[in-house]
Amino acid sequence: MTTQAPETVVVKAYRIACDGGGAALGHPRVWLQIPHETGFVECPYCDAKYVHADFEGKA
């Protein structure tokens, strides 16, 4: 059995919300702050990686 890589989402805001994306398959909504230094943040629930558009291809 293989494990799928977490989803990577490119966003235009530095503060974003993640709810896991699916009603029964989701998780509680959490607000995440993307640091200006690194340009990305990972959701502590679903491991989705959010990358700011300014850092696309770098993070």
Score class of each variant (00 low, 15 high):
Met1Thr: 15
Met1Ile: 15
Met1Val: 14
Met1Asn: 07
Thr2Ser: 14
Thr2Glu: 09
Thr3Gln: 15
Ala5Trp: 08
Ala5Cys: 13
Pro6Arg: 09
Glu7Ser: 06
Thr8Ile: 14
Thr8Val: 15
Thr8Ser: 11
Val9His: 05
Val9Trp: 06
Val10Thr: 10
Val10His: 09
Val10Gln: 03
Val11Phe: 01
Val11Lys: 00
Val11Cys: 04
Val11His: 00
Lys12Asn: 09
Lys12Met: 02
Ala13Thr: 10
Ala13Arg: 11
Ala13Met: 04
Tyr14Ile: 00
Tyr14Phe: 10
Tyr14Met: 07
Arg15Gly: 01
Arg15Lys: 09
Ile16Leu: 04
Ile16Arg: 06
Cys18Glu: 12
Cys18Gly: 04
Cys18Met: 08
Asp19Gly: 15
Asp19Asn: 15
Asp19Pro: 01
Asp19Val: 07
Gly20Lys: 07
Gly20Glu: 14
Gly20Met: 14
Gly20Thr: 05
Gly21Lys: 07
Gly21Gln: 11
Gly22Gln: 12
Gly22Asp: 14
Gly22Ala: 13
Gly22Leu: 07
Gly22Lys: 09
Ala23Pro: 14
Ala23Val: 12
Ala24Asn: 13
Ala24Lys: 12
Ala24Val: 07
Ala24Asp: 06
Ala24His: 06
Ala24Trp: 09
Ala24Pro: 05
Ala24Glu: 13
Leu25Pro: 03
Gly26Pro: 11
His27Gln: 10
Pro28Thr: 15
Arg29Phe: 05
Arg29Gln: 13
Trp31His: 08
Gln33Tyr: 01
Gln33Cys: 05
Ile34Cys: 05
Ile34Ala: 06
Ile34Gly: 05
Ile34Val: 11
Ile34Ser: 02
Ile34Gln: 04
Pro35Glu: 08
Pro35Asp: 11
His36Val: 00
His36Leu: 06
His36Thr: 04
His36Ile: 00
Glu37Val: 03
Glu37His: 00
Glu37Leu: 08
Glu37Met: 04
Thr38Phe: 00
Thr38His: 00
Gly39Met: 13
Gly39Trp: 03
Gly39Pro: 00
Gly39Cys: 05
Phe40His: 14
Val41Glu: 03
Val41Phe: 02
Glu42Tyr: 06
Glu42Arg: 15
Cys43Ala: 05
Pro44Ile: 02
Pro44His: 03
Cys46Lys: 09
Cys46Thr: 03
Ala48Phe: 08
Ala48Cys: 11
Ala48Ser: 13
Lys49Thr: 02
Lys49Gln: 10
Tyr50Ala: 08
Val51Asn: 13
His52Leu: 02
His52Phe: 02
His52Trp: 02
His52Met: 02
Phe55Ala: 13
Phe55Glu: 04
Phe55Asn: 00
Phe55His: 14
Phe55Gly: 05
Glu56Thr: 08
Gly57Glu: 15
Gly57His: 12
Gly57Asn: 13
Lys58Val: 07
Ala59His: 15
